[in-house]
Design a protein around this nucleic acid. Structure first.
Lengths: 226, 226
DNA sequence: TCCAATTTGACAATCGTGTGACAAACAAAT
DNA sequence: ATTTGTTTGTCACACGATTGTCAAATTGGA
């Protein structure tokens, strides 16, 4: 059975983006652009999770959250808040009012999807640990944020780390530049496609003997050899 | 069977916060905003633990605690006191009042949850050994609240102590600034997140040869070298 | 061979962290 | 209540690391 996720957000671009990704992941999105109507839908439909923008027309996210948490029928529904940069103060209050997590814009849809998954699991009482990824002598430990080759630590920048993580995580499958830009850089990225190539190069340089594991798929993108 | 925990606290924000976290941890929260009514509930329901704010309308936390400890049916129920900064803490710890532990606001919900767990276990007769953390010549003794390097005591402020404790306790893992703010500064910190950096610097200065054990993870946060 | 795609080297702009200084908040003592 | 010293949070600046971009060189496939 598909989880229903209510998204209340006034920016059409972000909304479409989130909606598309939710569908792609098999969720059933309910969307609203207006605060009051968002609250109405939340109370009527009782979705499995709510993604709430902080700044909304007619009724802001904070108020919606307050009402939901006071209502016995909806208090258990997890809420993820979306906040713009600079709304730091409000984000804390969001937590006090029972928001389960928050994201600061700009964020990548991928990241939001991940948090949604985590929050839903947590709400269901299952907590999960970040997984250590291994590939022969190559070990990526997200908890420590380290990459080692045969126990020898590798010094990667954050972008290189994220890129490698993405590649190894989906090893065997080809990732297009668009995919990588989306997953590693996030939706805000509007630049030069070849940026990916540059980072692949830097990654290969640092990977030493594992460099050849990052295969170029001409005309498509890159793939980590399985 | 779920432990029932009574929370008597007049600040709605704090109350919601605690309530939410208790539920998330699988406890069954009973909540009251008024001192007198809090006492009534305590006497009638006999919860497994009581979290009491010191300053309360109609009847303050101290009085409630006194009454409970005089009553044979409730004297065994552990009490955790919540106090604002600057309030007389000494009187609370006084064994005549019988509070089992206390927390100074602001605190992080995580920290409260930890203490609740400890106090409940202790009440059940399972005593927790105070864990002394060692790392080569660096010794942190939480019970004495002291830090020594090769037997030589280190003069740390409370914030520095907490920060170091948090870092060493989770050594090997990266802690983001947000994470540290949450765990070290508590739930209502609304400030500049680079405050963390400043305290890291002060800590490094005092740590002498151990300074290099606090690693900077660019783009993420800090990590204590394992 | 030729064309399109990728790799490479170079560069400037931007970002993140360390640092010193400062004032507010606090605690202890008078 | 006032003073004194300590602790704490904030900020501006400097500097090196990181990043995105581009053009030229190279590669691979038709």
């Amino acid at each position: 059975m598909r989880k229903r996720i209510l998204v209340v957000e006034d920016d059409q671009d972000i909304l479409s983006l989130i909606e598309w990704h939710l569908k792609a992941e098999g969720y059933q999105p309910l969307i609203e652009k207006d605060g009051q109507r968002g609250l109405d839908v939340a109370l009527r439909e009782k979705p499995d999770l709510i993604v709430l923008d902080l700044m909304l027309p007619s009724l802001d996210g904070l108020e919606i959250c307050k009402v939901l948490k006071k209502n016995e029928a909806t208090e258990h529904i997890p809420v993820i808040m979306l906040t713009a940069k600079g709304e730091e103060i409000d984000r804390i209050i969001g937590f006090e009012l029972g928001a389960d997590d928050y994201m600061v814009k700009p964020f990548s849809p991928r990241e939001l999807l991940l948090r949604i998954k985590v929050v839903i699991r947590r709400a269901a009482g299952i907590s999960e640990k970040p997984v250590i990824i291994r590939y022969d002598g190559l070990v990526i430990d997200p908890e420590r944020h380290t990459v080692t080759i045969d126990e020898v630590p590798l010094e990667l920048t954050i972008t290189e780390y994220n890129l490698l993580f993405e590649l190894v995580k989906t090893k065997g499958r080809v990732l297009t530049r668009d995919h990588l830009l989306d997953r590693v850089w996030g939706y805000r990225f509007e630049g030069y496609h070849r940026t990916v190539d540059t980072h692949i190069r830097r990654l290969r340089q640092k990977l030493g003997s594992f460099a050849e594991n990052i295969e170029t798929v001409r005309g498509i993108g890159y793939r980590f050899k399985e």
